[in-house]
């Protein structure tokens, strides 16, 4: 079982003067239980990739399969119920008059009763108390409340493949913890893909990392290999590593240490401190 994209390309506005190649042949897959983190500069194609993986865009070239089924010839939509995508702009995801209805719609539509129980536990999980928020309009929430409500709407469907586009953007510290917790829980049964500019936050969760640059994969592999390749990716403009990783790269470039960079700040401190000459 897996959600698989094979040599996928995508052009926006085909046939107009504004035609935009957004993806140029990307291959990528995630299986239940796995977490894949997608990084890359603004405009590199991350959201486009996620929209294709979520079945919202049809690729110009290449194949997308959900557990071996492609959309093409089938009467059953293989994406329906199996793949859930939380949008980068949560406001674009809402449609119902209240938060409670909005979050309950997905599970109800998939035959999970009236969806109320699933909605309630999803709202709790993202830190929105149903008592305070279920009757609110989703369109008058604060930015962070909106992101949480939109995430709840996807979590409530318990998709087998959970696709998250900048899930922590605009969230406070508690929101960041709630997202981490939601990912950890979802992974027990689901495959998770996280698109993010906050690499430090999610690399701990990652089985694999994809770095996009101008619509192509600048890197694809393990976190360990990503860190080993960080100098090249930074020099090539594909990825600016988190500051604490950059500090280790810088120390290595200055000949202060020979160790490859690590993600854990405590371990990084010990390595840097042990490298000598520290004031």
């Amino acid at each position: 079982m897996a959600l698989t994209l094979t040599d996928v390309a995508f052009d926006y506005a085909v046939g107009t003067s504004l035609a935009q190649p957004a993806l140029r042949g990307v291959t990528f897959s995630v299986a239940p239980g796995e977490c894949v983190v997608v990084l890359g500069p603004s405009g590199s194609g991350k959201t486009t990739l996620l929209r294709i993986a979520g079945g919202l865009l049809i690729p110009s070239r290449g194949d997308v399969t959900v557990d071996g089924m492609s959309r093409g010839a089938r009467r059953v939509d293989p994406f329906r119920g199996a793949v859930g995508l939380a949008f980068q702009r949560p406001e674009a995801q809402f449609f119902a008059a209240t938060v409670g209805e909005d979050v309950a719609f997905g599970p109800r539509n998939l035959g999970n009763g009236d969806g109320a129980a699933a909605a309630e536990s999803a709202l709790e999980l993202v830190g929105l108390s149903p008592g305070d928020f279920a009757e609110r309009s989703p369109f008058t929430l604060s930015g962070g409340e909106a992101r949480r409500a939109a995430l709840a709407g996807i979590l409530a469907m318990s998709p087998r493949y959970l696709l998250l586009d900048e899930p922590t953007s605009g969230l406070d510290a508690a929101g960041h913890r709630a997202v981490s917790e939601a990912i950890a829980r979802a992974r027990a049964t689901a495959g998770v893909v996280v698109v993010t500019h906050d690499a430090a936050e999610f690399l701990d969760h990652a089985d694999r990392v994809l770095v996009l640059q101008e619509g192509a994969a600048a890197f694809s592999g393990s976190v360990r290999d990503l860190l080993a390749d960080a100098d090249r990716l930074e020099a090539g403009g594909a990825w600016v590593p988190p500051e604490h990783v950059r500090a280790q790269l810088l120390a290595r470039r200055l000949g202060r240490t020979t160790s490859p960079p690590v993600l854990d700040p405590g371990e990084a401190a010990r390595i840097l401190f042990a490298s000598g000459g520290v004031t």
Binding site: A200, P242, E243, H244, A247, L263, P265, G266, A268, A269, R270, L272, F273, V278
Partner: peptide
């Protein structure tokens, strides 16, 4: 606190 802040504290 971002990781760089945690790293600075640890140092």
């Amino acid at each position: 606190l971002p990781e760089i802040g945690v790293l600075a504290d640890a140092l």
